[in-house]
Design a protein around this nucleic acid. Structure first.
Lengths: 138, 138
DNA sequence: ACAATAAATGCACTTCCATTGCATTGGTTA
DNA sequence: TAACCAATGCAATGGAAGTGCATTTATTGT
């Protein structure tokens, strides 16, 4: 079990207080978060720093971006089973129309999609919308 | 073969010069277009009019919205086989990373997606990214 | 045909998110 | 300790989406 510091270093990300905090914040969350979510959680920090931190995490492939159709980009830590680098191996995302949260269904792989002749599929983005387990369980 | 005027009227859309032009523009295009695309095509018209025309078309279900992950909403005419009202019967969209165009693969239905227990799927958005037929055929 | 009414259009403005330039701070290394 | 580079903070910009209101255009009833 690596420490977060060691993990970040192994990904060539310089360890700073801010980055540790943001990483922990993402790790605690079970859902994908927006920049504003992070902003609200760290009111003392500057928007830009949070923005660039997330971008750094994205480049170093420890965070992936999710476009769930709400128009606002969301982010989530890549977890075991999330091979974002391997574009053909993307999992799907679920967006709850009730609580408005978006979660990664890491274990649910996207089925092979057939495209017409001449088309080359490099990457698939699949967002299922509906009611999540918490909201439907009421 | 109905005229466009008759078609619009049958959908309870009042026929105006602007709407006819925009409809024709969409019909000519084989790809999904952004608001800016329309704006560029009709520089004399006001942005708001174009915006609201598209929204009207959307409400009356002759146009559907596509979120292809570029962050910019695109629109396309609903064609034969496009039953946008029936949410479970959505076709998929293909976004070309080369020419940056998004096209509707109307005949390609989205496969049934399994979601975990407790989750209720209401709607599925699937965008495949890659290289389109025109670009790969070089 | 004309007045009354309703819808469509145009203009101005606002909001929200994403992004960038530049100055400053802070940590690393020679 | 000086020099350097990365990280942070501040300010500002840009683009797209959306809204309020005045004006024009079309429709309806008399």
């Amino acid at each position: 079990m690596k420490t977060i510091e060691e993990f970040l270093e192994s990904k060539n990300i310089r360890v700073t207080a801010m980055r540790l905090l943001i990483y922990k914040f993402l790790a605690e969350k079970q859902v994908a978060v927006t920049l504003s979510d992070i902003e609200n959680a760290f009111e003392k920090a500057d928007r830009t720093t949070l923005y660039r931190t997330i971008k750094t995490f994205e480049e170093k492939e420890i965070v992936h971006q999710i476009d769930d159709g709400t128009g606002i980009t969301k982010y989530a830590l890549c977890e075991k089973g999330c091979n974002c680098e391997i574009e053909t191996d993307l999992h799907l995302h679920f967006h709850c129309n009730n609580c408005n949260e978006t979660i990664c269904l890491t274990e649910h792989k996207i089925p092979q999609i057939k495209v017409p002749d001449g088309f080359v599929s490099e990457n698939v983005n699949l967002v299922v919308k509906g009611i999540c387990d918490k909201c439907s369980g009421q």
